[in-house]
Design a protein around this nucleic acid. Structure first.
Length: 801
RNA sequence: GCCGCUGUGGCGGAAUUGGCAGACGCACUUGACUCAAAAUCAAGCGGGUAAUACCGUGCCGGUUCGAGUCCGGCCAGCGGCACCA
């Protein structure tokens, strides 16, 4: 039998779909459930990328295996379709984003079908459909209702090219995540989601989930919890305290100055009393011009200005100390003010050196003349803290003292910031809020959802960073639902991350027009058992969606706090040249070209065989050919079928392979699972024949990876029903071991020979057999045998002198 | 600077977690088939040697009968965070 993929692949895809075998059954209590989730694609005009294939193939294989193991499997797909590329394309071509999106989804769906993925196509969702974003808006209003939505005027990251405000997540490194232009700072009133309120829950929740360790670590870093204390310094002679946050309150006796951020409100309050206000104003202006990126990058040179006329008082020893403003302190973290301990903090040290300030060591160790000392040591120059050597104890002691004096308390801080939740763009979910001159900010009533995107002809955003919706009077002008007076709608839309923050819930009940999803079905399917996706989504999408899910849990919509029980990630597919695939480098591989030339089964096999699933691996056309060769040899097995139940020579190999493939697939070691199937194939070829029973086992093991070919073989040998729905092979442990094993024999730790021993053979017998080996005898000639080491089935080591 | 990960043939990568390093695949070499090429099949394939010996998992040292694997110290690369107080 030849592997005629062009004929058989469409045939089986059609049969699977007609029979509906991949449809999930809601609330089926008769079998265990498995919810496998892959990150739904953004349907770009370019179509599918080989990266998509790799990302989906892992859970595709697991889902197919689960079905064969008797699970009720939910393996859905959809489209995360709001976003800038579509809108930009609309601006360029004049075609409506709705039309572009629909066309791209059709294209994507067809491509996904040609790869033979076993998605449940009845549950496809599209985040840009009204029936879907109605519920995105609903969740937003629920958050509003629970005080998690707020407006604030803030310096925001603004991309002058995309003309949008970006979240911190989208502007990492001072570059726009979408177009890579430099970000500038702009003052704007924007919407925020109070994600920081969930910082602790998001951190704690990580203890109950099975994420790859690096994924967990990245989230922990992102949340960035630190423990320390808040301390109030009195401003000398005034009813004013300067509140700071520190992780080392026990170094309070080493404080020689204070630093506040340039934007700190203290300055505005005492404008009249600050002698050098002109100088300070100039410094503030200078800082405002810099982007946050510049501010954090120009770390070499500390700048700042001493505030003339204000002094702080150290609450523990009453010492008066100067206050500076400097841009190395950020308004966005802690309280925007610090106590400076130059002896033990490198930044404070550099600042003190530059401005000629005192440096008082309070921890023994290091060379204070050269650099700040951040290590451990005995406390000195610190009154009641002197003599402490353990930092935990000294911190506990000083916090006790601060609390007694009423000038401070223990506290925690998170690096994570609130989520800037808006875009000044057309192609996004309208924010369901009304601005009323009488009532202020009023939410759109739930009954009025969805708040639809109005038809627009010009998608260009306003030059002042305003949304295109602001130009549509019929959309903007409305009546206030509270007082009935004339009011205006919010014209910002939600950021692209909104729709993907809850999509996995909608798959569970995609056509429900009463609720986000039926609670019974939610309870049945959630949590997602296994979620696979890219490392690039570990800190944004993953954190956002966990936040939304925790919130939905708190208001009783879902019944688990954590949405994903397990999370894994695939590695990138690099271009054949080893560089990241990109259009400009011309090293992009189109998966459809591969399907066309080699078939979907070959493509599926290759992306899983090409290397460690979690690692970045370059594409190799030659290796694709290798996979093609492999499947063609498998197709040829049909001709080797002979009468019988088992082939004794192959029995152990079969049992071993079932065991290895079963466990390797679970551990995402797809490359070694396929290698094991290749080895088994080599074994069968060497033997020259196999039984129908054995061929059935073989194609069952390969079926999740190369299902079209395996179904075809199954049909050819008279199998009934779909192989994809047959039972997963089982092995017997006792049959996975050979009667004899080849064991290496070392002399003084060096390999000198190999002997064949009965499996699990006793030491005495093993030694006897080893000593009969002439090669080994030669090495023992004239030497004293000092020690014999024997590890059954593994190694013999003879120590001689 | 901090945190995490990774260094194994010409290449992608294996190694039951301390027990025969290089499974499996690619590339390559030789042979068969062919007028020839492709495809296919067979054999070989870490370095070294005529064959042994010997040398080999980034580098240096250690533990052990035995180290790719464990410990200590470096070096290089990748990813994340970053004037975070």
């Amino acid at each position: 039998m030849r592997h005629e993929f062009k004929r058989i692949e469409p045939k089986w895809q059609k049969r699977w779909e007609e029979a509906g075998i991949f449809k999930a059954a809601d609330n089926d209590a008769s079998r265990p459930k498995f919810y496998g989730l892959v990150e739904f694609p953004y349907p770009s005009g370019a179509g599918m990328h080989v990266g998509h294939i790799k990302a989906y193939s892992s859970l595709e294989v697991i889902s197919r295996k689960r079905r064969m193991e008797g699970y009720n499997v939910l393996f859905p797909i959809g489209f995360d379709a709001f976003g800038l590329p579509t809108e930009n394309y609309a601006i360029k071509t004049g075609v409506h984003p709705r039309k572009i999106t629909d066309d791209n989804i059709v294209k994507f769906s067809n491509q996904l079908r040609r790869v033979g993925f076993s998605f449940d196509w009845d549950r496809v969702i599209d985040t840009t459909e009204e029936d879907y974003y109605k519920w995105t808006q609903w969740i937003f209003l629920k958050m509003f209702e629970h005080g998690l939505v707020f407006r604030d005027t803030a310096l925001v990251n603004y991309c002058p090219s995309c003309k949008v405000v970006l979240s911190n997540e989208d502007s990492q490194g001072g570059k726009c995540d979408i177009c890579h232009s430099d970000i500038v700072q702009k003052s704007k009133t924007v919407w925020y989601l109070r994600i920081t309120e969930y910082a602790e829950k998001l951190l704690q929740g990580l203890e109950d989930v099975d994420y790859l360790p690096n994924i967990k670590q990245q989230q922990v870093n992102w949340i960035g919890k630190s423990q320390g204390a808040f301390v109030n310094f009195q401003v000398d002679g005034r009813e004013e305290t300067l509140r700071i946050y520190t992780t080392r309150p026990d170094t309070l006796f080493g404080v020689t100055f204070m630093v506040i951020a340039p934007e700190h409100p203290l300055i505005d309050r005492y404008e009249a009393e600050i002698a050098n206000m002109e100088e300070i104003r100039a410094y503030r202006e200078e800082c405002a011009k810099k982007t946050e990126f510049e501010r954090t990058q120009l770390v070499k040179d500390k700048t700042g200005v001493k505030i003339q006329g204000l002094e702080a008082v150290n609450p523990l020893n009453g010492k008066k100390i100067p206050i500076f403003i400097a841009d190395y302190v950020m308004m966005g973290y802690g309280t925007g003010a610090i106590m400076a301990v130059p002896a033990h903090d490198q930044r404070d040290y550099e600042f003190a050196k530059k401005f000629g300030l005192d440096i008082i060591p309070v921890i023994q160790g290091g060379k204070i003349e050269e650099a700040a000392y951040a290590g451990d040591g005995e406390m000195i120059n610190s009154d009641f803290l002197n003599g402490y050597t353990n930092k935990k104890d000294s911190i506990a002691r000083v916090i006790q003292e601060l609390e007694k004096l009423g000038v401070g308390e223990a506290g925690v801080q998170y690096k994570m910031k609130d989520w800037a939740f808006n875009r000044q763009r057309y192609w996004g979910e309208p924010i369901p809020i009304i601005h009323c001159p009488n009532c202020g900010v009023v939410p759109v009533p739930y009954e009025e959802l969805p708040l639809r995107l109005p038809p627009v002809e010009n998608f260009e955003p306003g030059s002042d960073g305003e949304s295109p919706l602001a130009k549509i009077d019929s959309f903007v002008n409305c009546t206030c639902p509270r007082c009935g007076g004339a009011a205006k709608r919010e014209t910002d839309t939600m950021p692209q991350w909104a729709g993907s923050s809850w999509y996995f819930l909608r798959y569970i009940d995609p056509h429900n027009d009463k609720e986000l999803a039926d609670p019974k079905k939610l309870k049945y399917w959630m949590p997602v058992d296994w979620y696979n996706g890219g490392m690039e989504h570990v800190t944004r999408h993953m954190i956002y969606s966990r936040f939304w899910h925790h919130f939905l849990y708190d208001i009783g919509v879902v019944n688990t706090p954590e949405p994903y029980a397990k999370r894994t990630a695939q590695g990138l597919i690099l271009g054949p040249d080893g560089d990241k695939m990109s259009k400009s480098k011309g090293n992009v591989v189109d998966p459809l070209d591969v399907v066309e030339e080699y078939g979907a089964d070959v493509l599926r096999t290759y992306v899983l065989f090409m290397g460690d699933y979690g690692a970045a691996t370059p594409w190799s056309e030659n290796s694709v050919k290798g996979c093609k060769r492999f499947l063609e040899r498998v197709a040829g097995l049909v001709e080797l079928v002979r009468e019988g139940e088992v082939t004794p020579e192959l029995e152990t190999l079969f049992h071993k392979t079932i065991k290895k493939v079963s466990s390797d697939l679970e551990e995402m070691k797809f490359n070694t699972a396929i290698a094991a199937l290749m080895e088994l194939l080599n074994g069968i070829s060497a033997h020259g024949s196999l039984t129908r029973e054995e061929l059935t086992t073989y194609i069952k093991l390969l079926c999740p990876i190369a299902p079209h070919l395996c179904e075809e073989i199954w049909e050819k040998i008279g199998g009934e029903g779909f192989l994809s729905m047959s039972s997963w092979p089982v092995y017997e442990e006792s049959k996975t071991v050979d009667a004899t094993v080849k064991v290496g024999v070392q002399v003084n730790g060096k390999l000198r020979g190999v002997v064949e021993l009965p499996a699990d053979c006793q030491k005495e017998e093993a030694m006897k057999l080893v000593s009969q080996d002439p090669k080994i005898q030669a090495f023992l000639e004239g030497k004293n045998l000092v020690k014999e080491i024997y590890v059954p089935n593994k190694i013999v080591n003879l120590v001689v002198k």
